[in-house]
């Protein structure tokens, strides 16, 4: 997947980034409009929730705005960078949810493979059980695995773009993906069938 369609588009986007980094609000607005729907769609697929997707999208662009000065153009460009931020936000959200459950004494900290119920994912709005199960299992993986799977499959980045976004070489990305898929398979097996909260 190309973010900007062609080299000319890439150059245009690059100039927009440079202007935004120099403090040009219009340039940032243009970048925002270019990516807001894609990032929202990515977040929606990870959460199955409009509310959570909007929260994660907002956090992503807020972080991107704050860190824009540090952004350096690499393969995949601005889009890959945004997706990486969004993936980080999403895995942080899951981690916070796990910690909240732990604080209530429901789950031991660090125990990521717990049976889940509708109560755990009470805000999930849409999707069949298989989709909800897949999304829920993905949220139990360690953040790096979540990022790798999300960037490669849910954001639709090429293998190379996902590797750049992760800050990995292609071989390491391949290894990470292999391990992430294996961990996801294991997490889904441990979950068992979806059960309604009592």
């Amino acid at each position: 997947m190309r973010f900007t369609g062609d080299d000319e588009g890439t150059e245009d986007e690059r100039r927009l980034v440079e202007r935004a980094q120099a403090g040009d609000a219009e340039a940032f607005s243009a970048l925002y409009r270019l990516y807001v729907q894609r990032i929202h769609a990515f977040c929606y697929r990870r959460t199955n929730s409009r509310e959570l997707a909007e929260d994660a999208t907002a956090s992503t662009f807020e972080r991107a705005y704050r860190q824009l000065e540090r952004f350096e153009w690499r393969g995949g460009g601005f889009g890959a960078w945004l997706y990486r931020i969004a993936a980080n936000e999403l895995s942080d959200n899951y981690r916070r949810a796990q910690r909240a459950r732990s604080e209530r004494g429901q789950v031991a900290m660090g125990s990521l493979h717990t049976p889940y119920t509708t109560d755990d994912f009470e805000r999930i709005e849409a999707g069949d059980d298989d989709t909800r199960r897949l999304v829920a299992a993905l949220g139990t993986l360690n953040p790096r695995y979540q990022e790798a799977i999300s960037l490669r499959y849910l954001a639709g980045l090429s293998h190379e773009e996902a590797a750049v976004a992760m800050g990995s070489s292609k071989p390491v990305m391949a290894v990470t993906l292999t391990r992430a898929l294996k961990a996801l398979k294991k997490a889904m097996e441990k979950m068992g069938p979806f059960e309604e909260a009592s």
Partner: peptide, 18 residues
Amino acid sequence: LGRRPVPEAQPEFVEALL
């Protein structure tokens, strides 16, 4: 899952965030 159509972000949200 990556190809599944999802609702677009609502215009109110998009504009408010910007």
